[in-house]
Computed example of a mutant assay.
Amino acid sequence: MPNPPVPPATVRSGNAPVRSWVRRITQGGQLTETCPPYCTDTHFNDDSGAVDDLTHGFHFDGPELPLFDSEQGSAPVPVLAGRVQISPYSISQRKRAPHLVLEPVQDEVIENLSPDEFAEIISKIRAQCDVLDEIHARFVAIHAEWTETLP
């Protein structure tokens, strides 16, 4: 007898109900799984499977930038997106703790970041933004000088 479909996850607030379901384990047996409060995953396909392939978490979007591809030309690509997640049954101790998966550019990830490692990346990106501000100021001046040379 198949399990009923898993209802979509929502972020709990106030007296929102705890979301739990029975998960059939591929290797045999079952367990009752409960989403942590921050989980927004739907878990539609998580009524059965290997015990260690379950994750809970939420995704965050990044801005789109027009990146150039020699075959496709320029196209908007999300950057600095990611996901906060936990893999409660993973064999990796780092994955069993809440961790961040950062996607600096679409389909390229930095996995299993701790809060301190994520802070280090944020610091590097902020420092690079300061460099970009300096380059922008120089670029504006260079462009203005060039404009003055036009007939």
Rank of each mutant, 00 (worst) to 15 (best):
E120G: 10
Q93L: 12
D61M: 12
K124I: 05
F58Y: 12
S90I: 02
E103G: 04
V105N: 00
S123C: 06
P4G: 03
P104F: 02
S90G: 03
P78M: 11
E117M: 08
F139Q: 10
V101F: 00
T26H: 06
L31Y: 03
H136Q: 13
T40C: 02
T55E: 11
E120H: 10
D47R: 13
Q72S: 10
S90M: 04
V105A: 08
P76G: 07
T55G: 05
V22R: 12
D41C: 14
P8G: 03
R126N: 14
Y38I: 09
I110T: 10
Q85P: 00
Q93T: 10
V84K: 11
N45V: 07
G28P: 01
D52V: 00
L100G: 05
P104S: 03
P8Q: 07
D130W: 01
K124Y: 13
G14S: 06
T10I: 13
P37D: 14
R24T: 14
G57R: 12
V109E: 09
G73F: 04
V77S: 05
V105I: 15
D52A: 10
I121Y: 04
A127W: 09
T34M: 00
G82N: 03
P4D: 02
A127Y: 13
N15T: 11
P98V: 09
L65H: 01
K95S: 07
I121A: 06
E120S: 13
R96M: 01
H56R: 08
Q27G: 09
V109A: 06
A9W: 10
P17M: 09
D41M: 12
T34W: 00
P2S: 07
E111F: 03
E64F: 12
C35F: 07
P88L: 02
V77C: 08
I125Y: 09
G73T: 11
P8I: 11
P151Y: 03
E64G: 06
F68A: 04
E108G: 07
S20P: 02
Q128P: 04
R83C: 07
D69V: 03
G57D: 07
S70F: 15
R83W: 09
Q85K: 11
R24I: 14
L132D: 15
F44L: 12
D133W: 02
L102P: 01
V109I: 11
P5S: 04
Y89T: 13
L31C: 12
A81D: 01
E148V: 05
V18G: 05
Y89Q: 14
T26V: 05
P66Y: 00
E120W: 02
M1C: 08
G29P: 03
R83A: 02
V22G: 01
L54D: 01
A119L: 08
R19F: 12
P76K: 06
L54M: 00
V79I: 15
R23H: 00
D69G: 05
I110A: 08
I135Q: 08
V101T: 09
G49S: 03
G57P: 13
P115G: 06
V84D: 09
F44C: 09
V105W: 04
L54G: 01
V131F: 04
F44P: 05
R126C: 11
R24L: 14
